[in-house]
């Protein structure tokens, strides 16, 4: 409880910084460079330390399971995000439907090449529109040849259904019906699973904490 004041002050400072930066950043692109930087990493690092101090200095009690899950989950989420911040990468790639063409390398925006460790191509693409011609459905048939193998592996790629291959998560981002250009995104993120586990820890923790009997007693104080 004695660390709560420090935690509240840090949270208030983070909220104020977030609010000021959000108000002064006119677009999402600018906003990303404002927030995803080392200054924010340091603030959030201090916040993590305070969270851990809060969790580990108090007397352990199984009744506080929600509290532990929530606060450790928050730290784990920030650790997972940090792992992506230092080592993750997103590479946009444009392809067209070509039955016999596959790619083993992709190009970053600075023109450097990345060897995927597998060959990938798009053999078919389904596209449906609403009567007003707005997009209704996209689906790309992807063919993959793993290194040293001539056996094709076909996978379905959807807007909400990315595929994973050799550490890459591949997303279907958009499609141009005029040019036939299919926008994909290749992403590497070693912090993905820590983030997913953290999200479920926070969710379970917050429901346990807010609906606990202890919290109910607090309402009467």
């Amino acid at each position: 409880m004695k660390h709560m004041k420090i935690s509240v002050i840090i949270m208030a400072a983070i909220t104020a910084v977030l609010m000021i930066l959000t108000i002064i950043s006119p677009s999402s692109t600018d906003s990303k460079s404002l927030f995803a930087n080392w200054f924010m990493v340091i603030i959030l690092g201090v916040f993590c330390v305070v969270q851990l101090v809060c969790v580990f200095t108090g007397k352990f009690s199984a009744k506080r399971l929600g509290f532990y899950l929530l606060h450790i989950g928050l730290v784990l989420f920030l650790v997972g995000s940090f792992m992506y911040f230092v080592s993750g990468e997103k590479i946009p790639v444009h392809m067209t439907v070509q039955k016999d063409q596959t790619y083993s390398t992709i190009q970053r925006s600075d023109d450097s090449k990345v060897n995927l460790g597998f060959d990938i191509g798009i053999t078919d693409f389904k596209f449906e529109q609403y009567p007003d011609r707005s997009p209704k459905f996209y689906n790309a048939k992807v063919v993959i040849y793993r290194e040293g193998s001539n056996t094709p592996i076909t996978k379905d790629l959807y807007v909400n259904g990315p595929i994973t291959e050799n550490g890459y998560k591949i997303y279907l981002m958009s499609y141009s019906s005029q040019t036939g250009d299919i926008s994909l995104m290749f992403k590497t993120n070693i912090g993905e699973w820590p983030c997913i586990i953290a999200i479920w820890c926070i969710l379970i923790g917050v429901f346990f904490t807010c609906f606990s009997k202890k919290r109910e007693r607090g309402a009467k104080s």
Partner: peptide, 25 residues
């Protein structure tokens, strides 16, 4: 979780996301 499936990021520092985080904080 949805954003990770559709945009490839849990968090994009989008205007709406930022304000939702401010609200939550």
């Amino acid at each position: 979780l949805w954003a990770d499936q559709v945009w490839g990021d849990f968090w994009s520092w989008d205007l709406k996301e930022n304000w939702s985080l401010i609200t939550w904080l």
